[in-house]
Amino acid sequence: MKWGRILAVARKDWREAMRGMWMVAPSVFLVAYFGIALPAILIYAAKATGEVFIPVNIPLPIRVEGDLARSLYFAFQAVVPLIFLVIPLAVSTILAADGFAGERERGTLELLLAAPLDERELLLGKVLAALVPGVVSSWTTFLLMVPTVNLLSSDIFNGPWFPPGPEWIIVVFIISPLYSFLAVAITCALSSKVRSVKEAQQGAGILIVPLLIVVLAQVFWGVAVNAEALILASLLLGGIDAIMILALPRLFHGIRYLLE
């Protein structure tokens, strides 16, 4: 396996994506919206109305004074971490869906398959091409969110408080890349089976379901997600990813039939 060829495939995809606004504009929008606009809206709305939007009775890991702070804290804790799973999912699956089905639609798949790359190199190149922008977008969002939240809400929390615990670090830097990899691998496999990018994107839509279940569990059933639960989830995701790495070449084998 030669990394030069894997990176050549990934770099080519990035270059193509950068030339088309269809990729760059939505990614920049997502990062700016979730990194700056959404936290600002949440904080200003809470301050302006003084409203406690979620009554919170569960114990909080940090000392938070007042209902407004407790409510805001819970909103961030329950909903915002999922952003770091949604962003890479959105960014990466666009690229991953385009990976093979897009090459086929544009008539370039034939030459890619005729090049002296083994299937694993081609697949890794495509996975890397889709994974990196998603993870980078997620991390950039986090890096923007930290100063935004602290700047706008330090008066409520009596100083910088965000991120409030190790859970965030686990979500952003471990679970987010692991889940993105899983999403990209599934979408790439789908993209190598279906005949159009649209079909691949529709198929990849299913990946949002686990995230919705987590949100519902937290908001409606009060399921607390602590560091231990997240470490367990990371191990589980890591295991699934490992199985995926082993199974992918077999799933991917059907790519040649796209040309038949």
Binding site: K2, R5, G20
Partner: peptide, 29 residues
């Protein structure tokens, strides 16, 4: 050891001529 010219022109339209050729040159080392 084979050079293929497919029936349909298979080049990356968004990339320049040089970028297209450099990509394939890297694949073929």
């Amino acid at each position: 050891s084979v050079g293929l010219l497919p029936e349909r022109i298979s080049l990356y339209e968004r990339l320049t001529v040089m970028e297209n050729l450099l990509f394939f040159a890297r694949l073929y080392e």
